[in-house]
Design a protein around this nucleic acid. Structure first.
Lengths: 344, 344
DNA sequence: CTGAAAGCGCTAACAG
DNA sequence: CTGTTAGCGCTTTCAG
């Protein structure tokens, strides 16, 4: 025998006022006599009354709710960004739907539909899949619901973006290696990753500008990924490369997991980082700190990424007529212990 | 000039039927003529009609929504559990609110209220704070909303729990160390952690049973935590301990971060794990795999934890009369490279 | 099989 | 300052 939840009507009756007065007390948006107010509040707390979410929503059409899509939470990177988003949004009264798309384009779309159906006031999508961007899917839906895309393919797309200026960090890392005397530098990248493609472009342009020898074998490609498996792949490929002629004396890895794999490869040859090979990772995750030796890594400023994405989203929510824009965040090299001057 | 979203009324008018018929088509719960149905469906998809979430909720009172509370996402542990929950719940049509309490009791309560206000159908709380349990807060609210508490203090509390049988794993780890000849074993624990307290209890009982010397200094206590800071604290304290008389030859750490700190301490003394000290971590996070040497660690079967918690929650949601119950998950030692026989 | 009509619980004019 | 009332968009009897 469960007691039915009290409604505003019950409260009104018990307090001897009309429902509108109760409503006014709840919302505190119109003048109410102090005595009346007190009386109503008393009944409210006595009956543990909570206004019905749906009835309110029906009128305000507000959910104070935001959806966040991530390709994965098991990679030390996104949890930091999500936390940053969560904390920011929380302080603005929003609660967050977490959606793990498992990097599937289909899941991505399915989740977006679910979120819209649930009347979220906005959506942030981390690393959205390129096909969904190219197909116009996001462009279309961003007309219906405030949307921010983070670190995504963005050429000619009319959506709001927050992007890392990958170029700056990549160049800084490469310059640094060059400054240490390295000319035979390899790039370790993921096969189908947009950001890896970007980095390769910068790498090539850098090597060209410096007139360093560009060797095809020095672009080491492994399956895209951000987990333990990536470490394995990377270790295998780097190990092979190190056994070939003209082994690189320095490697720039497109994420920290790859860098760890590279370190393992070096170790397998009974050599060490940074004595025999200088190594720089990307993303500056905790892995870089945990690694032995500690890994120099290009930071993406993940907290900022989350914060800026949240800020942008809130702006769009406030002002839906917002003109799509791109916000760029800097990247820069964090120095640790994995690089050393080239030995003659 | 934004076109207003179409309502069921618009669809009805355009399809030349009544709103009830449209409703029946949408819900597919009453017979409708095939021709009529087709006509209605056509209009629906043409107008891209989506039934109003609130209006529906007002009647069904269902949100297909679940809240998950975590003390943190930046610790390699909870993301795995959350992912497991998310994946399970997703397949049952639920979407998940993620709430980062930052391990604050107050935030915990605030979030719970927010979630209830949003009409979630259930709540899973990972590592809830003990005070909130002891105060009866959770016991009371679990009467109103289906609730599952994971890895929490649970004596005499009438809530649904999913718990790791910490004893089994702890004992297995200690037995293993003893089998390698270690008798001077230290425990590295967090100061205010419930699970650390549990482990200390088992540790003491084990040492007693084996008649191994119990040294007060061998219970090394550092501030509770699950992050980089924990590594620092742990390294410092272990380093100190290693310099005292009768340094331990093996350490059981209450989580993997602590274990890494211990390894660093050993390294700082120009010694190595496992040659000079055997080391076992707890939680079996990726850190254990990433660590050099790879860390033997007691696994909490995090995926199972998430799955079982979700299963339990769904059962309660289906059958609210459910009698509060406790589900225990086993823990066991995962062997890697951080332990070795005691040298004479 | 289909339509009319009565709400669900709340807010927001509008009238006092 | 307060009460009356008309919906918000949908589902669900109840009659046909």
């Amino acid at each position: 025998m469960k007691k039915k939840k009290p409604t505003i009507k019950d409260i009104a009756r018990e307090a001897g006022v009309s429902t509108s007065t109760v409503s006014r007390v709840i919302n505190n948006n119109y003048p109410v006599h102090d005595a009346t107010r007190r009386k109503v509040e008393e009944v409210i707390s006595k009956r543990r009354f909570q206004p019905n979410y749906f009835a309110r929503g029906m009128i305000s059409n507000k959910t104070r709710t935001v959806g966040v899509l991530v390709p994965s939470l098991i990679n030390v990177f996104f949890p930091v960004v999500v936390t940053s988003i969560e904390n920011y949004l929380k302080s603005h009264g929003f609660t967050l739907f977490l959606c793990d798309t498992e990097a599937s384009e289909k899941e991505e779309r399915a989740y977006i539909h679910r979120l819209i159906e649930k009347n979220v006031e906005g959506i942030i999508c981390l690393d959205p899949s390129t096909p969904n961007i190219l197909s116009g899917f996001y462009e279309k839906m961003s007309g219906e619901t405030p949307l921010v895309l983070v670190n995504a393919y963005n050429e000619g797309v009319k959506c709001n973006f927050v992007l890392n200026n990958q170029k700056r960090g990549t160049m800084e890392a490469l310059e640094y290696l060059a400054g240490l005397g390295h000319t035979n530098i390899a790039l370790l990248r993921g096969s189908k990753s947009y950001s890896s493609a970007l980095k390769e472009e910068y790498y090539l342009s850098f090597m060209g500008k410096k007139s360093f020898p560009i060797r095809e074998e020095n672009i080491i490609t492994i399956p895209s990924g951000n987990d333990l498996e990536t470490v394995q792949h990377s270790m295998k490929k780097v190990h092979e490369r190190l056994l070939e002629p003209h082994p690189p004396t320095a490697i720039l890895a497109c994420n920290d997991w790859m860098a760890v794999g590279a370190r393992n490869a070096v170790k397998k040859l009974h050599k060490t980082v940074p004595c025999h090979l200088s190594l720089i990772g990307f993303d500056n995750t905790i892995i870089a700190e945990l690694c032995e030796p500690k890994l120099s890594s290009v930071t993406l400023n993940m907290e900022d990424l989350g914060r800026v994405a949240s800020e942008l989203l809130l702006e769009i929510i406030e002002k839906p007529s917002f003109v799509p824009q791109r916000r760029y965040l800097p990247t820069s090299l964090v120095h640790r212990e994995s690089c050393a001057p080239l030995k003659e």
